[in-house]
Design a protein around this nucleic acid. Structure first.
Lengths: 244, 244
DNA sequence: AAACAGTATTGACGTGGATCAAAGGGCTCC
DNA sequence: GGAGCCCTTTGATCCACGTCAATACTGTTT
């Protein structure tokens, strides 16, 4: 049973205009007045506990979601049970774009840790982006970025070897942590070896072995999910030189 | 220097309102008056000969392209020379969405046969979609569809075996030919085994062997690039039942 | 009609990553 | 704070696909 709760200081704090993620998110490039309009549109926030679904494949599509705190994975499941992780999402990134095309979500979004998202009703976003040019453009850029990212994953899955895939993954995570003000070289992965493996098209044992190998070679220090990158250029070399 | 050219019969013929691809393309869902507005926006058409680039990775992004005739592939090339075909595009499909995110294209688009595209200047498309709601929505659907398609390819690359990948590819081609009024069971592939292989994350020999195997099993009749599907349910069974 | 280049098929063999298996370690939830 | 379970690591073996190589086909050019 829900009850009406008066607006609290916390609610004000999470307005787009006050949000420290705005440079990474939908408000990027908007002027203060425009951000206020976007604020009104963000109807509510939703907390998702670890392992819970934000949405499921087949759900009606009504809104997209901006991650305020925590992180997610998205996956696609085949009839025979095989599944493929299609992405990992961090704060400031947008979830749910897959649902626009058919009005139904085509993948599952699952929280990797206790998380919070801003709910952005899609019809209202389209409405506002008809009058706010910068919002329209930023939204298009976000969709396009997703397409470009997916092409990168295809490249990875289609033509890289196991260690190259893991190196690419680690460098990508590092870069995204950096963009959020965290250390480029030391971070905590929220996903399991199995989930990394699914994303990279590898089995969890192969991921584990590749981590061990990187450790032996002094490229990274691995302690379970805690990663310290010791030799970034070394990882990059792994990617480009493809010693066949 | 551009000069004003009077409207010719040819120009009228290829207007969106007269185009038999409009149900598959950007005009879908627009009323006649709105289609006329879209028509004005489609500045020019461009013919691309077989093997020529429509755009290259790194090119400035200015327009998206709707395929009027022919077909294309898109690919991404790594520094060390490895490349990955990220998609094959047919009539009515839209190319160039990858360029929105950075204002530069991030892949190459190459004609598989002599082809023709409609050039849609992107800033003018954004402008018009601010006043024409149905155009805005259709454009968003097209971008979202691309994301969903990419997720399907990731599933394919990440967790399917060679024959499953080829079966999925053939069924997908069949469906797209059908949507264009061609036979679902008999068609001509415009791409080489090598290009199919790159798209599916396989070597060309593996693609060729899988074709031969399908032929032995009576699933398809293959004669070089000419394909006749003899047993669609059989191909579908290959996909779902994953006899491990 | 011959010559050619690009494309496709098929065979033999090698290998990277999957699979199977077992043991140890660290979280999570009482 | 302890019990249990999930996660991770590591080893041994297997196999699907890659690699290398030779031959054949097709459509194009002259």
């Amino acid at each position: 049973m829900k009850s009406v709760i008066p607006v609290t200081v916390v609610d004000i704090k999470v307005a787009c205009s006050q949000c420290n993620l705005r440079e990474l998110c939908l408000p990027f490039g908007l002027d203060p007045n425009e951000i206020d309009q976007l604020d009104e549109l963000v109807g509510s926030r939703r907390k998702i506990k670890r392992q819970q679904h934000l949405y499921r494949s087949g759900d009606n599509f009504e809104a997209i979601y901006a991650i305020r705190a925590g992180s997610f994975k998205t996956d696609v499941i085949l009839e025979d049970g095989r599944d493929q992780v299609t992405g990992f999402q961090m704060t400031g990134e947008v979830l749910g774009l897959d649902g626009i095309s058919t009005e139904h979500h085509s993948c599952n979004a699952i929280a990797l840790e206790d998380s919070e998202v801003c709910v952005i009703p899609f019809n209202r976003l389209e409405e506002l982006s008809r009058t706010v040019e910068s919002l329209q453009h930023q939204f298009h850029k976000i969709m396009s970025r997703e397409i470009v990212r997916d092409h990168g994953v295809m490249m990875l899955l289609g033509s890289m070897r196991a260690e190259e895939r893991l190196a690419a993954f680690l460098l990508n995570m590092s870069q995204r942590f950096t963009a959020r003000g965290f250390s480029p070289s030391e971070f905590h992965l929220r996903m399991t070896r199995d989930e990394i493996g699914s994303y990279l098209g590898l089995k969890l044992e192969t991921v584990s072995r590749a981590f061990s190998r990187f450790q032996e070679e002094g490229l990274v220090a691995v302690q379970q999910k805690h990663i310290r990158i010791l030799d970034t250029p070394g990882l990059k070399r792994l990617l480009n030189h493809h010693s066949a």
